[in-house]
Amino acid sequence: MPIWGMVIDLDRCTGCGGCMAACKVENNVQVVPPGEALKGRGMHWLTILSRTEGEYPDVEAVLQPDLCMMCDDAPCTKVCPVHATYRGAYGLVAQIYPRCIGCRYCMAACPYTVKFFNWTAGEEGVNLSSSLNPDVSVRPKGVVEKCTFCYHRLQKAKERVRAEQREIAGGDYVPACVEMCPAKAMTFGDLDDGESPVSRLAASRRASQLLEHLGTEPKVYYLSKRDRNV
């Protein structure tokens, strides 16, 4: 069984925001009304972090896509009181919306700040129902949601490989963000397979994980020529 992982090459990333937009559309992420968004309730399963490195005049802007790290030892799954978030098949951290009681403990525990809460009911003011992705459920108000590595695409891939009578393999699906990335900065695949591009990149010397020292063992790796000890 593959262990899905992602490698993002920050030296290739142009910060175009394509992954962000693709993710939002693909996963029916709530379009938060402007007033709410100004309060800090905007929702993007994948955000682009920006910060500057170095001192004047050698300043460099660093843009870094931030999504659920699918931690092997996830702080959020440990604290969930009702098993609404857990580490499921393929090493993916899942979120069950109909079970979540909305205590937001997982959000407080997540050091990556990639879990989002539906503060209000979706689709307020703007009717987007005709443009919703039929494969992804729309979340009600009061539950927590997060990136799923496009689990619905994985479901479809599983059906496809069953029809083809073979085992699912690393290259059988990619999430929407990876598919969209015009700079080919994102690589997705099976971390368990040592020959796959993603695991070769993850093993390279340029690779690092976010907040490695916390011991959460994320399955999203970043590549950079910079010395990156966040």
């Binding site: 309060k39 800090g40 959000m107 407080a108 700040t113 503060w119 009061g142």
Partner: peptide
């Protein structure tokens, strides 16, 4: 009726 949106909580201050 309206959800926790009526509070002042938001991302990342969820409590």
């Amino acid at each position: 009726r309206n959800g926790l949106g009526v509070t002042g909580m938001m991302q990342p201050v969820t409590w």
